[in-house]
């Protein structure tokens, strides 16, 4: 199977600071790629480049065979890239249900009424159905994180970008989340998942990528990557 997402020599600098440094990456359709790295490694910037919030200075990004480097975020979303932000960004003055209607209606370009059933389904799957008519601004952090995931799902993505969605959750909540991720995996959606809650990530990711200073320092099967001395030194701070 071909790569659904391919980055080729992608770079991004802020002033003199190179945040992403000539990164190349191929993600297979249907896989879940876990992304690790110390703070400032460029993980969220990588997501910004893929979702289009930030434009790359150099390199190519291909998604589903299309060159998307110059497409604005809304068009990348319509092509099938769904994103859950690290800091939840709910539409606070709208209800939870309406949040999903926006995503379903604009993300998959449907008429409003055609989105109601799928929105209800996603609300059910993410445990938000009982809060459907609550204003999103009144939700707890856990529910905001759920909404962030639900909204990304409602766009009907082929590729999901999950940015630290397990951060701040209790052990039990994190395991519930892993179950949800596994369910999404079974539907064939490809995922990139940035996460510091490593055991949650390892429970779902088929492959790991470790970034440091905008470069790839390790990539491959989880066990091998976690055993890599360089990863242990850079990410886990172990002496090597």
């Amino acid at each position: 199977m071909g790569a659904i997402l391919a980055l080729d020599g992608v770079s991004k600098s802020y002033g003199a600071l190179r945040v992403i440094d000539g990164l190349s990456l191929a993600v297979e359709e249907g896989e879940t790629l876990g992304i690790l790295g110390p703070n400032g490694a460029g993980k969220t910037t990588l997501f910004n480049l893929v979702s289009g919030d930030v434009r790359a200075d150099a390199g190519q990004i291909r998604f589903g065979g299309h060159e998307i480097s110059h497409e604005p975020p809304h068009r990348r979303c319509r092509l099938g890239i769904g994103r859950a932000y690290q800091v939840p960004q709910p539409f606070g003055a709208m209800t939870v249900f309406e949040n999903l209607i926006v995503a379903a209606s604009f993300g998959s370009q449907k008429r409003e009424k055609e989105t109601y059933d799928s929105a209800v389904q996603v609300l059910g799957e993410t445990g938000l159905l009982s809060k459907a008519n609550r204003l999103a601004g009144t939700l707890t952090l856990l529910d905001r994180k759920r909404l962030e995931l639900a909204r990304a799902l409602a766009t009907g993505p082929r590729l999901l970008l999950l940015d630290e969605i397990a951060g701040g959750l209790t052990e039990h909540e994190a395991m519930e989340l892993v179950e949800e991720i596994r369910r999404i995996q079974r539907t064939g959606v490809t995922m990139l998942w940035i996460e510091h809650v490593v055991h949650a990530l390892l429970a779902a990711a088929g492959r790991l990528l470790v970034l440091d200073a905008g470069r790839k320092i390790a990539e491959g099967a989880p066990v091998a990557v976690m055993g890599d001395p360089l990863v242990q030194r850079v990410y886990m701070g172990l002496a090597a």
Binding site: S51, G52, D53, P72, P73, H74, C77, R78, R83, Y85, Q89, P90, F91, G92, A93, M94, E98, N99, V102, A103, F106, G107, S108, Q109, G137, R151, T155
Partner: peptide, 14 residues
């Protein structure tokens, strides 16, 4: 209404 709350999120929802 969505973009009033968050332009970034609205844009990334299509």
């Amino acid at each position: 209404l969505a973009l009033r709350d968050s332009e970034t999120a609205a844009e990334s929802q299509g």
